[in-house]
Write a protein that binds this DNA or RNA. Structure first.
Lengths: 247, 247
DNA sequence: ATTATTATTGAGCGTTACTCAACCTCAGGG
DNA sequence: CCCTGAGGTTGAGTAACGCTCAATAATAAT
């Protein structure tokens, strides 16, 4: 039976909660530095100053411990995102804020979270049957709803193109950020988050602008013809170039 | 000592290669259905019809076996990508092809590969110290170079905005596709790859268009772009003519 | 047929996540 | 104040894991 879930009659909860926090803290630290699979429950117990059995009293499995950590993280992430969106009004500023907040929170946690999420996805999920029923999917859903809200409001205001696909745009946004974080980490250039966020959000922003905000390209026939001719020439030249290379 | 790596004097390689293929096939099947960590080397051995020790004769560790599988996959992925890019000339068509090919190859392998890549990333990588030295990074680099080439050429031709950040755009492209695949799998809607690819690439395309492409028709910028394209073609043709004269 | 070399095997090793019978701890009733 | 017993803690134990290696089987070379 999970310790904190039982009615605990008149027991002082403070100590129990302290223990749970100690275990989570220890696990978070170790997962971050060594990774999930390289961290044993024995070491977590030692680091938290308890025995191994106690760890399993508070968390039924090592996976449940991981989920508890992700829970805390998503709570913080969702909270900061919601606050920021409420403060900022401009659609573009909101998107920039969400992106920056996302990366900042991930990097502040030493890239721990993205690794844990990946581990969890790879360990526990069979996309074909039960992804939608997983706890992590629910956390993710709550979080991305904030983003969805910003986009919907942007469309209502006329800032964004009503024709764009929200799921596709969401995938671009968060997928781009996740890969962007890896790029930043690879370059050891985590200081320059704002600049990279701008580089990621800018093209997306242009691409999802309402048509009114864009220049209308209804070109005259001559231009179209030239364009077409150029493409045909381009194709021919490429073929010739390749043939030349081979010989 | 790895069996196939030793000079094997005059041993027949056919049987050894068959064994290696059997082991890889068995592992691929099991990893795909149950995941990496839920598949034991004992079961792989049984599935391949060999003893556990033999598995470790061919692959020094379970991780090395995973890498071998990824190797094969990346080879196929890179190959098909390169072929397609050579056939298609138009920049936009190329990007659409790369995206479709990427998703198709992933989905054809029952989403196995993306899971394996994630597992590998989460198991083996410390982004701060040694990501760039990993084998998987090299595979990924070879693959994404094709994409980079398409973008660079697109810029040279005047199709794409020279001011855009290639790393950022690459992150958007592949990150968006990875998340997009999850979306497709979640919806059990893997048939409609082409449509979803279009939804992902379209906003990106608009966002990375050269300013000329977004400009008012008949403007000097558009003329300049066509001028530039013509000059490039002129130059290429002259080179080919000279080469033809020499031979 | 004999030998030399290489491929294969499975019992065994250290370690893992996890269990459980035994052991502490301490609030509440006598 | 000391009992009592529910609740919290413990670490030896368990099955299964990735991996090793001495022994064995198989086969090319002599």
């Amino acid at each position: 039976m999970p310790v904190l879930d039982t009615p605990t009659k008149n027991r002082p909860r403070a100590r129990l909660e302290q223990r749970e926090a100690d275990i989570i803290d220890a696990a978070t630290r170790l997962f971050a530095s060594d990774g999930f699979h390289a961290t044993s429950t024995r070491r977590i117990a030692a680091e938290a100053g308890v025995s191994e059995g106690t760890v399993f009293n508070y968390f039924s499995t090592k996976n449940a411990l991981l989920l508890a950590i992700l829970d805390e993280f998503y709570a913080r992430l969702t909270e900061t995102a919601r606050e920021g969106v409420e403060k900022v009004m401009d659609t573009r500023e909101r998107l920039l804020f969400l992106a920056t907040n996302h990366l900042r929170e991930l990097l502040d946690n030493q890239a721990l979270m993205i690794r844990l999420i990946q581990v969890y996805l790879s360990v526990d999920i069979n996309y074909y049957t039960d992804y939608k029923n997983t706890h992590i999917h629910r956390l993710n859903y709550q979080y991305t709803r904030i983003f969805d809200g910003v986009v919907r409001e942007g469309i209502e205001r006329g800032d964004l193109d009503p024709a764009l696909s929200l799921p596709a745009f969401r995938d671009l946004f968060f997928g781009g950020l996740e890969y962007g974080m890896r790029t930043l980490l690879g370059k050891n250039n985590t200081a320059n988050v704002a600049a990279y966020v701008q580089q990621i959000v800018d093209p997306l922003w242009t691409g999802m602008l309402a048509p009114a905000g864009r220049d209308v390209p209804g070109s005259p026939e001559t231009e179209q013809r030239l364009e077409k001719a150029c493409r045909r020439l381009e194709k021919a030249v490429r073929k010739l170039e390749q043939a030349a290379e081979r010989s």
